[in-house]
C-alpha cells in the first residue's frame, strides 16, 4: 500500500497526474497525454492493417442498452449512472436549502437516459445489431473511450475514469479465437518493444458476490479471459494492462448478432488499459520521458 501511495505521490509531485480530491479521479498533464497518444499510434501501426472500422462513443451510453447488457447482474458495484435534477421551482428551493445546511441534496436526483460507459465496447453491440447480418468473413471494430468503474483506490493503476482502447471481433468461433490469439502474441511483442516486462495469465472479471464466485470460476475453467500483466505498484501482484476476452456466443445471443448464414456470431475483444500502460512506462523507465532508453523513445516517437 505504501508503495502505491508513494508512486501516486511521485506522479502528483512530477505533475504527471493532477489531484482532484477524489481517489481514482485525476487530471493528466500534457506529457502524460503525449505518452498515451504515442502508444495509441503504436497500436495503430500494429493493428491498423487489419482494416477495423473505427467508432468513437462518448463516455456515456444509452441506459436501455446498459440494462439489456446485463451489467447489473454481474458488476452492480462498479456501475455509475447519471442522475439529474428534474423537479419544479419549489423542489429547486428545497434542494438549495439542503445544500446550504449540508443535508443530502441528491435524494431527489432522477435517473437520466445515460449511464457511464463501463467498457469501450458496450455501445458497439447494439449498434452493430441494428445494421443487420454480419458478413461471413466476420467484422472488426476499433473503439476507444473513457470508461467508469466505481472502485475508489489510492493505487494510481486503479482509476475510476480511465481510457480503454479496444478491438472487437465478430464471426465464427474459429475466427474470433484466432483474433484473440494473434493479439496475445502481438501484445507481448508490443510491450517488449517499449521495454516492458510482461507475463500473460488466465484471469476472471470481478463479478459481484458469491454468485460471482461461480461466474469467475466458470470463466477460468473455460479459458475465456487472459490478461497481460506488468508490475507497476507491486511485483507480487502485477497490473493487468491488456485483456483478451472470448465471449463465446453470449453477446451474439443477447444482441441478436447473426452471421449471413443465420448462425449466432461469436465475439472476442482485446482491450488496452491506456493509463495503466502509460503508468507502467513511467514506473519502469522513470518519470522523465527525456531520460527513457533511446530505443523505447524511438519506438514511441520515431
Amino acid at each position: 500500500m505504501d508503495m502505491q501511495v508513494s508512486f501516486l505521490d511521485r506522479l502528483f509531485d512530477a505533475g504527471l497526474l493532477i489531484e482532484t480530491g477524489v481517489d481514482g479521479l485525476y487530471g493528466r498533464s500534457g506529457q502524460f497525454e503525449d505518452v498515451i497518444a504515442a502508444f495509441e499510434r503504436l497500436i495503430d501501426r500494429v493493428g491498423g492493417g487489419d482494416g477495423a472500422e473505427a467508432m468513437r462513443f462518448p463516455p456515456g451510453m444509452n441506459r436501455e442498452f446498459f440494462e439489456t447488457s446485463g451489467y447489473m447482474k454481474s458488476f452492480p458495484q462498479l456501475a455509475g449512472t447519471v442522475h439529474s435534477f428534474c423537479g419544479s421551482e419549489l423542489d429547486h428551493m428545497s434542494l438549495l436549502k439542503c445544500m446550504e445546511v449540508g443535508d443530502d441534496w441528491t435524494a431527489g436526483q432522477e435517473a437520466t437516459d445515460i449511464v457511464l460507459t463501463p467498457a469501450a465496447c458496450y455501445p458497439l453491440y447494439p449498434t452493430v445489431a441494428r445494421r443487420g447480418k454480419i458478413s461471413a468473413k466476420g467484422a472488426l471494430y476499433d473503439l476507444q473511450s473513457y470508461c467508469f468503474r466505481h472502485e475508489p483506490s489510492k493505487d494510481p493503476a486503479r482509476q475510476q475514469l480511465f481510457r480503454m482502447r479496444e478491438y472487437v471481433c465478430m464471426g465464427t468461433q474459429q475466427h474470433v479465437t484466432d483474433f484473440r490469439q494473434s493479439w496475445m502474441d502481438r501484445g507481448v511483442e508490443m510491450m517488449k518493444s517499449v521495454g516492458l516486462d510482461v507475463t500473460i495469465d488466465i484471469a476472471n472479471d470481478p463479478f459481484f458476490g458469491r454468485a460471482g464466485k461461480m461466474m469467475a470460476n466458470n470463466q477460468r475453467d473455460q479459458n475465456l479471459k487472459f490478461e497481460l500483466l506488468i508490475p507497476i505498484t507491486s511485483t507480487a501482484n502485477p497490473t493487468a494492462c491488456m485483456s483478451f476476452n472470448y465471449h463465446q456466443d453470449a453477446f451474439g445471443t443477447k444482441w441478436g448478432l447473426n452471421l449471413e448464414d443465420g448462425s449466432v456470431a461469436h465475439t472476442a475483444c482485446v482491450g488496452f488499459g491506456l493509463e495503466r500502460i502509460a503508468l507502467a512506462l513511467f514506473h519502469t523507465h522513470g518519470l522523465d520521458v527525456k531520460a527513457w532508453p533511446q530505443e523505447v523513445r524511438a519506438t514511441l516517437w520515431g
Binding site: G70, K73, A211, M214, M215, N218, A250
Partner: peptide, 11 residues
C-alpha cells in the same frame, strides 16, 4: 443452460 442461469440454479 446459460452461465447466469446456472448461478440462479445454484442460489
Amino acid at each position: 443452460l446459460s452461465s447466469f442461469a446456472s448461478v440462479q440454479l445454484m442460489l
